[in-house]
Amino acid sequence: MLDFLQRLLGRESERPSKEQAKERLRLVLVHDRANLSDDLLPALKDELLAVLSKYMEIDENELRVQLAQEDSQVALVANIPIRRIRRAAGFSHQGAGR
């Protein structure tokens, strides 16, 4: 009956609570899964470095990769200081350089 009155009073437009549950779980699990697996972020960092190094020279010691939460989403934030970009010929997919 209370339910009925609440609906009459226009509170039904409130988002169903399960949507909140889902959203909160989604966010918390991003953090849980990333943080609980000790090697996830370091492994990601190593692979990023390997890929990026084909194109540019990175300052490895200053490379930072972490998760940051902004309102309703989690972002992977990477700060990658570049020392030098390699010449275009070095990474051409068509092998045009040589």
Binding site: P16, S17, K18, E19, A21, K22, L25, R26, L29
Partner: peptide
Amino acid sequence: MVRRGDMLSIDDVLEI
């Protein structure tokens, strides 16, 4: 509760 959106459904839990 699932029907009125106040409990995670089976599909919600499986999706997560």
